[in-house]
Design a protein around this nucleic acid. Sequence first.
RNA 1: GCCAGCGUAGCUCAGUUGGUAGAGCUACUGAUUUGUAAUCAGUGGGUCGGGGGUUCGAAUCCCUCCGCUGGCUCCA
Length: 637
Amino acid sequence: MINITLPDGSLKQFEHAPAGFEVAQSISEGFARNCVAMEIDGLKRDLAARIDSDSSVRFITIKDEEGLEIMRHSAAHVMAQAILRIYPDAKLTIGPVVEDGFYYDIDMEPISEEAFDRIEAEMKKIVKEKLPIQRQEVSKAEALAEYAGEPYKLEMINALEDGTISLYRQGDFADLCRGPHVPNTGFVKAFKLMKVSGAYWRADQNNAQLQRIYGTAYFDKKELKAYLTFIEEARKRNHRRIGTALDLFSFHDEAPGMPFFHPKGMAMWNALLDYWREEHRADGYVETKTPIMLQRKLWERSGHWENYRENMYTAKIDEVDYAIKPMNCPGGMLLFGRKHHSYRDLPLRAGEIGLVHRHELSGVLNGLFRVRAFHQDDAHIFMTPDQIQDEILGVLKLVERIYSTFGLGFHLELSTRPEKSIGNDEQWAMATNGLEAALKAYGAEYKVNEGDGAFYGPKIDIHIKDALGRTWQCGTVQLDMSLPERFDLTYIGRDNERHRPIMIHRVVYGSIERFFGILVEHFAGQFPLWLAPVQVGILPINDDLIPFADEVSARLERSGLRTEVDNRSESLNRKVRDAQLAKIPLILTCGAKEKEAGTVSVRTLDGQVRHGIPMALFEEKVLEHIRKRRLDLEFDW
RNA sequence: GCCAGCGUAGCUCAGUUGGUAGAGCUACUGAUUUGUAAUCAGUGGGUCGGGGGUUCGAAUCCCUCCGCUGGCUCCA
């Protein structure tokens, strides 16, 4: 008698060792049809596996995230099978499941996306055939024999420990695989190949270049469609597209990876920085500015020359080597080091919107997201050891305040000591404990990335989540145990002795260019009023009213609003349409009625129109809205 | 840097087997003077990313460089 306990505590008893599928059937036929795999005493198994002893069993169905992953893994096999049918000489390597689907790395002739139709058609055949996917356990020797002509598989088999090795067979195809898999290829119902790119065997540039073919798969067509719609939505929000359409910024071949900001982009840029300064002043930060070009000897001292030189722009001037700064810190160190500091002056919070240049590989450039010249909203905080917790907590709270202004959620990750690092155990323990204490005091959940810290200290990374649910690492708080040492920074303690200050680097926006790009996509170009490049569009109803429109504009500009008068001889409909397409949050129409009554007619971006609002009231409400940096467009006129 | 794809007017894109470059929108000009998402007409605009080659002839084929996109790797 075999006793099987299900997650709800119920017990199923069998006279023989049943296959998982039988057990599922004993619950109901419909349930069994939706099962893709199971977990026996915590180990994932195929549904076909026999349960030969008392155990607790949990079924994994098409409703479960795990079920989706298992199916996608099977989908990768189906794709590999299809590719082998079309390209018999292709050599398979590995094909894992990734966030939104799966890929397979294959050593084969370079292919383009044009080949997808053919591969997908072959995959459809395989799915239609509903080939049973069967697990087979073989010895290492048998596996080696099976894959005699497959160099990558042989390499993987040889790397495995002796013992049984599992293969998964479906029709004429068998892949080395741990499993589990769905019962047959018919489970791969809705799939699509997404893209192809190069990748290296074992991610090593010296190895063969493989074709990495990405695909995605869902249990039903609707979900696949929803995903494709999401991709399309993200494409529409692409910041390069919107940046061009709204005339915010551009790139030119003369300066690859170095963005040019247009007047409208600068209006937003300045709004971002005004806000940044406001919040930082409130938190006791002072602001500094250091040169973008400094002599080599400084970079030697900071360690950048040794570690980072390939990514630095350099020049020789009057026979002296210079480098354009890739980071602001060394300049900040010089500022701190130029005079004596008392413990009473600490913590010292010194911010700098610093322009840095990094010669990134050409292939990694990506719009505003990855550039070669950018501004960091840097700040260095110098403190005594017992101030670590409070200071970091202060940064976390500042970050929360700023991100929430944009409606951005976020989560925190702590990275600890890496293998290659400077400093001793005691220093690392103190630093890491300080960060952890701050995280605990802050109270939010956080993820720990063991060994992922910088060589000079542990760090907390802040990952934001945008309107499409995508995450981006923007903010970071890094404790630095190296620079204060290298620059011999000290403060005078209560004991009248010199002490080494603790120093952190921290950014909130990270790269302002990148944050700008993220905001463009987050808001899809429909920026909140306080941030919008043009806040008020002013539309004279006919050419005779242009002077009045100009008057209104001048008045609002004096109040600090960003306005634009549409003085073209176009129809009002046309002007409204263009203003809406330009995502201008507030549109004022100026006609004879408004001129006489001293009122405005306001159309908000959502299409709502309100007539007869007194000019002064409009101004007051709008300025208040902006002062509060609200995200909505609701007004109580 | 590597692999693949791409580069045609300010923008979005056509351009068939090589035969002197097109559309829509934008811009400009004129007419129109409009009450909440496109008024009409006209005009201008491109050494087809740069250079080299093949050819009687190249946007189209080949080489090379530059740039962009997607990945890989990288982000100390």
